[in-house]
């Protein structure tokens, strides 16, 4: 009897230890973000304080050695490259996942999936190098100078495609088999079933896949730095070179001093703000799309 109650209390103890260690680790994970934001604000403060936040939008140009710190062209660069990549990658990602799941013979499906997983594992600098020695010269021979918004979009597209495909694939795998049975019982063809039943049911997963893709595209640095040309300007067409916020930090941080350095942390803050705004919009969209029918 005694040993029995002992056993229970020790189980309680174990539970409590587990609970507190879980809380502790969750706290660490959660506070990381806050620490990063605090660090960014701390490093960006001299520029924010001395130059004022408006100068990053109203200065004439980006010439940090002449104390001109316009960041808007780089905001545009980041935004356009990301949007372009997602517009290309989202439909292809959705269709690839549907293909793997509902159309491909099993051997082909497995091979194709492995290939996509492999693509997801390729380091970004390899994509960048390939872009620099193959993709950029190709574009240059067609529409010089070559390094351009288009090159950035295509490289980002290649990088986020596997992420999007794999996430959507696993969300398709979670759709209850009963949906498929019912759809078949109703006499729906394969494509009608996918369009009317499967895709609406997998909506939340599709959104998650696209979010992850966008987040990766926003933060990508090395590959973008190598193929985009890094000229600070708001692009007027696809073949204009651009500089993204991340490339700006990577290119100039090693050599920056004083306000210049501090402004690079401001670009980091802006990137963070872009991600936050994007996540808020996306969550709102997802909530509305997913639960619209319930209301």
């Amino acid at each position: 009897m005694i040993s029995f109650s002992n056993n229970i209390s020790s189980q309680f103890l174990n539970d409590r230890v587990l609970l507190w260690s879980l809380r502790f680790f969750a706290l660490i994970a959660g506070s990381l973000l806050f620490l990063i934001v605090i660090f960014l604000i701390h490093e960006a403060w001299p520029a924010l304080h001395q130059l004022g936040i408006t100068s990053f939008f109203t200065d004439n140009a980006w010439y940090p050695t002449e104390s001109l710190y316009l960041l808007t062209p780089m905001l545009w660069g980041t935004f356009l490259a990301t949007i372009g990549a997602v517009i290309l990658a989202a439909p292809i990602g959705i269709l690839s996942a549907v293909f793997i799941h509902y159309y491909a013979p099993s051997l082909l499906a497995i091979t194709y999936r492995r290939l996509i997983e492999l693509l997801a594992g390729i380091p970004s600098v390899v994509f960048g190098l390939w872009g620099l020695v193959v993709l950029v010269p190709l574009i240059a021979s067609w529409q010089p100078p070559g390094p351009s918004l288009l090159a950035g979009m295509l490289i980002l597209f290649l990088m986020i495609l596997p992420t999007i495909t794999l996430v959507i694939h696993s969300s398709l795998a979670q759709i209850p088999i009963a949906y498929i049975h019912n759809a078949t019982a109703l006499g729906l063809g394969r494509w009608s079933m996918i369009r009317k039943v499967i895709l609406p049911a997998a909506k939340s997963g599709i959104f998650t896949g696209i979010f992850l893709g966008v987040a990766r595209a926003l933060g990508e640095t090395m590959a973008i730095l190598m193929v985009c040309g890094n000229v600070v300007q708001a692009p007027s067409h696809l073949f204009d070179p651009i500089r993204t916020l991340t490339a700006n930090i990577a290119l100039e941080m090693a050599y920056a001093l004083g306000n210049h350095r501090s402004t690079l942390f401001v670009s980091g803050l802006m990137l963070m703000a872009m991600v936050v705004i994007f996540v808020l919009i996306a969550e709102q969209l997802r909530y509305r799309e997913t639960y619209a029918d319930a209301n």
């Binding site: 010439y63 050695t65 010089p144 070559g146 730095l225 890094n230 000229v231």
Partner: peptide
């Protein structure tokens, strides 16, 4: 001066 340079590519 860096301001009057019209570059197409900026490298590290």
């Amino acid at each position: 001066s860096n301001r009057i340079i019209r570059a197409h590519v900026i490298i590290g």
